[in-house]
Design a protein around this nucleic acid. Sequence first.
DNA 1: ACGTCTCCTCGTACAGTGTTCGATTATCCG
DNA 2: CGGATAATCGAACACTGTACGAGGAGACGT
Lengths: 213, 213
Amino acid sequence: MWLRDDRPRRGAPPLTRERIVGEAVALLDDEGVGRLTMRRLAERLGTGSTTLYWHVETKDDVLELALDAVFGDVAVPEGGAGWRADVIDLMSGWRRAMLDHPWSAAVLGGRPLLGPNVLARTDFLYATLASTGLAGTRLAAAAYAVANYVIGSALMQVGAESHAGSAAAGHLARSRDLYPALAEHGHLDAGDWDAAFAQGLDHLLDGIGAAGS
Amino acid sequence: MWLRDDRPRRGAPPLTRERIVGEAVALLDDEGVGRLTMRRLAERLGTGSTTLYWHVETKDDVLELALDAVFGDVAVPEGGAGWRADVIDLMSGWRRAMLDHPWSAAVLGGRPLLGPNVLARTDFLYATLASTGLAGTRLAAAAYAVANYVIGSALMQVGAESHAGSAAAGHLARSRDLYPALAEHGHLDAGDWDAAFAQGLDHLLDGIGAAGS
DNA sequence: ACGTCTCCTCGTACAGTGTTCGATTATCCG
DNA sequence: CGGATAATCGAACACTGTACGAGGAGACGT
């Protein structure tokens, strides 16, 4: 997908890959991943559905492009505020982007993240973490740990919230005796997601900081 | 889904929910999530496709059940080896289960994890982490952090490996100047996933241990 | 023995899906 | 103006999840 070639052809056509992706994001935001259809997408763009296949190889391409577009909204910090603040900054934005587009969690699975927007932010993460003293494989592992944590967090939160207000709470309460520890300390579903995310990230960065110096 | 009722009826029928789920897992392992079809699944079971809908409400139910079945393979440690070893033990098994069934990463997205197998293991995680001194919301956040990390790790690894041997490496090399830090320290794709996972988990547990005491 | 009821199976059908293919138009270069 | 090339489109195909209603099989009360 990211290997293909899409240089602008002659005479800017009214239908571009950018327009397709933009409308796809809007459609996904409006109706969710289950309702994204080539025909529906084309309708919103005022074209025939098969026309899309001239600009895009497959529906999966649209999803991949839309996903990377979401990460394009993540602000890359200016840097210089100290590695820890910069990482927290970047990762909070990353998480917010995923929460603002909940379908991104479903699209993420089993797919390599190779879009330019993702790579640019990953690169910043590497560069920032390098100033802890980590390097090479150990740096890569630390960067992956942070990225995996934020992605997992957003994923789980989206999943839990998709169930909000349902009978899940009652279900958990009913099986109180089956899951005693869970019942005692409270499932996170009703809790403060932001604080939990910040705390977990703190733990992880504590560990990384200790390892780096 | 987990709220519904499936007590055994009169006279054990040859087609049970368990058999359906078992065959679904086998089919997913064999051919991947894109090839799971009600008709194909029914064929492997020797029944008509619409018969499945008597045992299962929707195709999504099959996926959810299959997903929880995967987590049923995760061994719950005996406990008593110390909280840290126990957590590492549980989480390594969790990760291995997801890597052994790569489709699970794709199924996970945007879905709440409420299956009994997941809950039982989450409960163990809570109970084990409680012995660090954490409790209440702070315990829940720590548990979520660990779970999110392992899920994110498996997710990313599956995604990266699904691309193995493709032109991705060449693509990254070609954009060396765009992503300098990434190029310098090496992407993880070719690296040692197991070691990276262990190191990241170490970092996280270091941070949690320091907070708990 | 018989009707009845409940569990379970299945064939048919429908509305929709992603994608292919060939024909058709629009737009530029020489 | 001719012709190549960029872009659009309609029709068609194989396949999807699922609703619906018709049936079969065995247990039960009488």
